[in-house]
Simulated assay, not measured.
Amino acid sequence: MPSDAASQVTPVRRGRRPGTNDTRATILDAARSRFAEDGYSAATIRRIASDAGVDSALVMRFYRSKGDLFAAAMSVPPEALQRLSDAFDGPTETIGERVTRAYLTLWESDPIEFEPLLAMFRSAVNHEQAAAELREFLQARFLEGIVPRLENRPDAALRVSTVSSMLLGVVVGRRIVRVKPVVDEDLDTLVKLVSPAVQTILTAP
């Protein structure tokens, strides 16, 4: 008959111990819920960390910014979005061409990069919350890159919103609705056609 001491031994726990992958998954789950409830602008790293039961510093260790965390939560590769941010570096005189090309290229590259974005667009068509998140996120990306170049103009947000709306329209026509002849044109032709308008909106007095 087993002794009392033996019967009180705690059983060895089997299976994989919680680790980095579990923590990342918990953070992403918390981020998805928080972004859905508060939207991109109102959600904070501190609140997401609290929801996940971790420290804010740990969230920033895994994800360098709120934008990268949103991208990860939405399964959009951060590298793809970084190329859009990089387009704002360079001479102001050519910013329209760079931004237009970088944005439209997102939808012409590796399917691993653009398919999650297309999924977000399709969700936004039927779900207002998804549409709100997408609008806030894209506008925030543009605002981060362009506002410093607009010399604190009071209409900076209007300019950025107009540009993002224009480029969203081109993407919807080309990748979702598939409007001809937009869907059949090569990228260089579209960039040449659209970028002068983007340049004017962003930089005109």
Score class of each variant (00 low, 15 high):
Phe35Asp: 13
Asn152Pro: 07
Glu136Ile: 03
Ser65Tyr: 00
Ser3Asp: 11
Asn152His: 01
Val12Gly: 11
Leu158Gln: 11
Glu108His: 12
Val177Ile: 11
Asp68Ala: 12
Pro196Ala: 15
Ala124Asn: 08
Ala49Glu: 01
Val160Tyr: 08
Pro77Ile: 03
Leu118Asp: 11
Ile112Gly: 05
Asp29Gly: 12
Pro116His: 04
Met120Thr: 14
Val171Tyr: 03
Val12Trp: 02
Thr92Ile: 06
Tyr63Asp: 10
Glu151Trp: 10
Asn126Pro: 15
Asp51Ala: 03
Val9Arg: 13
Asp186Met: 01
Thr105Leu: 02
Leu138His: 03
Ser85Gly: 03
Ala43Ser: 05
Ala204Trp: 06
Glu128Ile: 12
Gly145Thr: 05
Ala52Met: 09
Ser165Trp: 01
Asp22Ile: 08
Arg98Gln: 14
Ile146Pro: 10
Thr26Phe: 04
Arg98Phe: 08
Phe121His: 15
Thr20Gly: 12
Ser195Phe: 09
Leu58Cys: 13
Ala57Ile: 06
Arg83Leu: 07
Met120Cys: 10
Leu106Ala: 13
Ser164Lys: 00
Ser195Ile: 10
Val12Thr: 00
Pro196Asp: 07
Asp38Gly: 08
Glu136Gln: 03
Gly39Glu: 01
Tyr103Met: 07
Arg64Asn: 07
Ala42Phe: 10
Lys192Gly: 15
Gly96Ser: 06
Arg16Val: 11
Asp89Lys: 12
Phe114Lys: 05
Gln129Asn: 12
Val171Met: 05
Thr20Phe: 08
Glu115His: 03
Gly169Tyr: 03
Leu118Pro: 11
Gln199Asn: 00
Thr26Glu: 13
Arg101Ala: 06
Lys192Cys: 05
Arg174Ser: 01
Ala157Val: 14
Asp38Arg: 00
Arg141Thr: 14
Arg17Met: 07
Ala36Pro: 15
Asp89Val: 01
Glu115Lys: 03
Glu93Lys: 09
Ile146Thr: 13
Leu117Cys: 15
Gly15Phe: 02
Ala25Val: 00
Val76Cys: 06
Tyr63Thr: 07
Met74Gln: 03
Ile27Gly: 11
Glu93Phe: 11
Ala102Gln: 09
Ala119Ser: 10
Glu113Asp: 15
Lys66Cys: 02
Thr105Glu: 13
Val194Gln: 06
Thr200Asp: 04
Ser75Tyr: 05
Asp86Pro: 01
Lys66Tyr: 02
Gly145Asp: 09
Val198Gln: 02
Glu115Thr: 12
Arg47Tyr: 14
Pro116Gln: 08
Arg98Gly: 14
Asn21Arg: 14
Leu158His: 10
Leu202Ser: 02
Ala49Ser: 07
Gly169Leu: 09
Gly145Trp: 00
Pro111Cys: 14
Pro78Met: 05
Val9Lys: 10
Glu113Ser: 06
Pro154Gln: 08
Val59Ser: 02
Asp4Trp: 09
Glu113Arg: 14
Thr105Val: 12
Leu150Ser: 09
Thr189Asp: 15
Tyr103Glu: 09
Leu69Trp: 00
Pro205Leu: 13
Arg141Gly: 11
Thr26Tyr: 12
Thr203His: 10
Thr44Lys: 03
Gly90Cys: 08
Arg135Ser: 07
Pro77Val: 11
Pro2Ile: 12
Leu143Ser: 08
Thr100Ala: 10
Gly90Ala: 06
Ile48Glu: 05
Ile201Leu: 04
Ala140His: 01
Pro77Cys: 08
Leu167Met: 04
Pro11Ser: 04
